[in-house]
Design a protein around this nucleic acid. Structure first.
Lengths: 178, 178
DNA sequence: ATTTATATAGAACGATCATTATATATTTAT
DNA sequence: ATAAATATATAATGATCGTTCTATATAAAT
């Protein structure tokens, strides 16, 4: 991929996450990326196309992050594995910032405006649940884990991530004990 | 309160929730409320002031909703009480729509733009946790409950609320059993 | 070296944004 | 009935929005 395109994706992701999608203009994105406005339109059809690609990029990175954790999985047992992914998610939250889930925010902002964005976010969340099922969790347990993950993400906007991590682990131990 | 003002608050809340705060213009709000633009500025200092009042209004309604549930609390015991509030929250989600938590969305959109909005949302979430503590839950359990509530709200954007309710109750039973 | 592709700055487009001004009307209170 | 308060429609403000056009410059490929 072109370096300019990569710069655009990176700065767009950061700005969208910190300010929201409607709140940030393309002028600001190209300025921060150090790129001309026409270069953006050379790589992306529209702002909403840029948003779609930003989300695809972020999804790929998030799953890579989880998978890299799953690899060093020397332990079996539902609790341990769930705790493993919980730590991975907490680590993601710590480095990602405290502005909620970017996917859900995109869906919320474009709920009535862009069906493609909405569908892509729904697909992402469903494939996250599928990912958990593939890891050996039951469907019910996967939904429960997903709920806990979303809850941790939201609450990290209000409370310290370390305090959340403690209760996060505690909830998992109680719900997944064998 | 003036009826015009109430109409404005109601339509603003609905439009903000469905479209986002930056995405919706004041023209659209006054049009839907059947009111002149200057009437809005007669009742509110600015768009962001309107947002603050919408959130205050919603917070009042949400806590009223929870309290009306707490009143018909003929049962004691941590699990039963937690389940009671869980049902109240599920009922709120069912009637509120599936676009996430309006408070967090406001905080996210104005994170770098309006400190007052951010602080009001943080205060709201903290007073929700305080509410739980007042209901007799430990601090740790209150944070856990808050996390579950937020998770249910987020996940209701993706899955059917009834399916969520099942796992929601299951998580509470596991974590709050005496 | 010449062609082809990509990036540049800057202006223009039409639209919409929040906000203010103006001047007329309607409602409410005394 | 008279005065005060509130609501109305409309337009203007200056700014910003996403997108397109133009014309020049840089870079890559043949």
């Amino acid at each position: 991929m072109s370096k300019k395109k990569q710069d655009l994706l990176e700065h767009a992701e950061k700005l969208f996450y910190q300010n929201g999608f409607h709140a940030i203009g393309l002028k600001r994105i190209v300025h921060d990326a150090g790129v001309a406005l026409m270069t953006l339109y050379n790589h992306f059809d529209s702002k909403e196309d840029l948003i779609l690609e930003v989300l695809k990029n972020r999804e790929k990175r998030y799953f890579s992050h989880l998978n890299s954790m799953a690899e060093c999985r020397n332990t079996e047992g539902t609790v341990s594995v769930a705790l493993l992914f919980a730590e991975a998610h907490i680590a993601w939250l710590s480095s990602s910032g405290t502005n909620g889930c970017m996917f859900l925010r995109a869906k919320e902002e474009y709920a009535l405006e862009n069906e493609e964005i909405v569908n892509q976010v729904i697909a992402h969340k469903k494939s996250f649940i599928s990912f958990l099922v593939k890891q050996g969790f039951s469907h019910a347990h996967s939904i429960q884990l997903a709920m806990l993950f979303e809850g941790a993400t939201s609450l990290s906007e209000i409370l310290d991530v370390n305090d959340i991590a403690i209760q996060f682990r505690s909830l998992i131990k109680d719900s997944f004990r064998e």
